[in-house]
Design a protein around this nucleic acid. Structure first.
Lengths: 350, 350
DNA sequence: GTGAAAGCGCTAACAC
DNA sequence: GTGTTAGCGCTTTCAC
């Protein structure tokens, strides 16, 4: 038989799950002693530890999180994400991996898109007594975040601006977009359009990293004496498709389209294909995020990589530090890097 | 100002969060009365309901899940997934959407790959008192699943075999693979290789849907008098790449490669590209799952669609029924459908 | 170093 | 219909 060896026996024995009192009875000690051993609290003899550990093992005892949470910690950390797209998914997996070996468990909840929904998500994590929370691309106003963070360890991912009570980790969207414009302009493009997400209504400097990309684009264009050309769309395949259609129908269409997210760039490519505009010969396309699909042969999208630098690892480390008692805020900015692939080439001479 | 309107006021007032007793005091009633109103329990007057609702609203009261869980339900349902790949992600999002309007909250935990790790994940959900659990492609032995399911509403996704205490929803992997072989053979292919995942060690009929794909392939090949040609690899881009390399190095390489997962098919395409084997002219490629990237222009992979039929919705509905008291097991099998795209064409005449 | 007692916030009997 | 009481399983003073 190939049954996996596992410490706790399968059978709960009688009916209900064993409690700390059952362990205490078997070990011949008090319940509070068991509690102390289980939490590595100070002041237990080696003998006591051995007896309790043995009894717990024998009974297949597992502490109830709900009961612990009522007095102490829940040993759960919450990850809030607006969805399970490629970027948040990578972050979440890194966080999960980081805490996997610890006594904390990671629970992921999907909430977002707007402040109201995300606030509900955050409160629902609080209801569940999480010991800390990591928010991916949060749209919540900074004052409200500060209020929550005052009593709950919190780390933000992909949002700019230094917090008083929370930590942040974000990529330098401004620099990433600048680098892409530099690349495209260096190839000789002058009509470089940018597809941006609709305004999030967040007050500077606490904008999402994706918003600072637009600033980087505008700045880089102005630097080179080029006219910025921004069109707004949601960051989805359809959003990119619609924006590209509008762009390509212009009298003088752009020679390069830079989408603020890879997934929107995919829509751009579909629009170009349908209109018989050859990519990259007639139109260069670039994205941002370097999602898995972008690297696929056949897609081969020029983009900016922010995820692979391990923002999830950093976020997890920051939260772990807070769980250990740190209270001064930290703000970490990681450098994105340009990934030049096949969809960007010099424009055709006109 | 554009602050979102939200029911509960922001400020907790004084220090700690309001409890049911605070609400009771403000409303001028007893704590148990408040509890009843909050849970829509039987036997409360309209007047009482109004007073309590008002007081709760005013105080921004939110029930503590930990405390509720200690006595009754936790209003949390757990989703266990081996990772956040395209398929489980879609399932999880559907489940999340399904419960979003209810009083239940969905929490996702990543565990898996082997029985030991997944069992730990399942127990950790139990520790957290979830009211029900949905397991995506679980590798846990059926006896153990039954034992857990005896006291916890449980739904399995993508695993074959009817349970006594749990529900299942799975696609008909056998039929899906058969259909693909039919398509490929219909085009004229005779040397059709199949890339399968390593054996999971699960006892029939309780195998993962992906395992029944291999049976479907073998059956369909035999039906047509063709020799099955199976190579094992992990379902990843690298796994598919390695398997394809071995296949393409054969004296008489296959004219079509059918990978049991799209992501492996991507690796096949990379291997073909590196060896200057033209797809589809010299090699047809097919996958299974119809993930987002497969539909991208530039990838255009022929595949089998199982996810879009809403297995997540079905799983959520099944769990909701159990939460409402159903105990007879249900087993739902959804029909996969062939998606013919650009990577499959007739073989070159030899 | 160890145990007894109180209580976290809520729900579930049971009286009234 | 409403309030009182007890207690879920654990942690935490505080005696000893």
């Amino acid at each position: 038989m190939n049954a996996a060896s596992n410490a706790a026996p399968d059978a709960p024995g009688n009916g209900r799950a064993p409690t700390i009192r059952d362990v205490a009875r078997v070990a011949g000690v008090s319940a509070s002693a068991v509690s102390k051993v289980l939490r590595d609290a100070y002041g237990v003899s080696d003998d006591m530890r051995a007896k309790v550990t043995f009894a717990a093992q024998m009974l297949g005892y597992r502490p109830k999180t709900a009961a612990r949470a009522l007095r102490g910690r829940s040993y759960s950390i919450g990850v809030l994400t607006p969805g399970l797209g490629p970027f948040p998914t990578q972050i979440a997996e890194e966080i999960n991996r980081h805490f996997a070996g610890s006594s904390y468990r990671t629970i992921i909840a999907i909430y977002g898109g707007d402040e109201h929904d995300e606030t509900e998500g955050l409160e629902s994590m609080l209801d569940r007594n999480v010991d800390g929370v990591i928010l991916i691309t949060p749209h919540i106003a900074v004052e409200r975040l500060e209020r929550f963070a005052a009593s709950l360890p919190m780390v933000l991912v992909s949002r700019n601006g230094r917090g008083a009570h929370f930590d942040s980790v974000t990529d330098d969207g401004f620099a990433g977009a600048e680098a892409m414009v530099g690349h495209l302009a260096g190839l000789g493009h002058r009509r470089i359009a940018y597809i941006s997400q609709s305004d999030q209504g967040l007050e500077p400097p606490y904008v999402l990293s994706s918003a600072s990309r637009e600033e980087g684009y505008a700045h880089a264009m102005a630097d080179r004496g080029l006219a910025p050309w921004v069109v707004r769309a949601s960051y989805s395949e359809d959003g990119g498709y619609g924006a590209a259609c509008a762009l390509l129908d212009a009298d003088e269409p752009p020679t390069a389209i830079f989408a603020g997210a890879d997934v929107a760039a995919f829509g751009v490519m579909r629009a170009a294909y349908e209109r018989h505009v050859a990519v990259p010969a007639e139109l260069s396309v670039a994205g941002y995020d370097n999602v898995f699909a972008s690297g696929l042969h056949g897609v081969d999208l020029t983009t900016v990589d922010q995820a692979s630098v391990g923002m999830g690892d950093i976020a997890a480390r920051l939260l772990a530090e807070r769980l250990d008692g740190r209270t001064e805020p930290k703000y970490e900015v990681v450098a994105p890097k340009l990934v030049v692939r096949g969809t960007s080439v010099p424009p055709r001479v006109e």
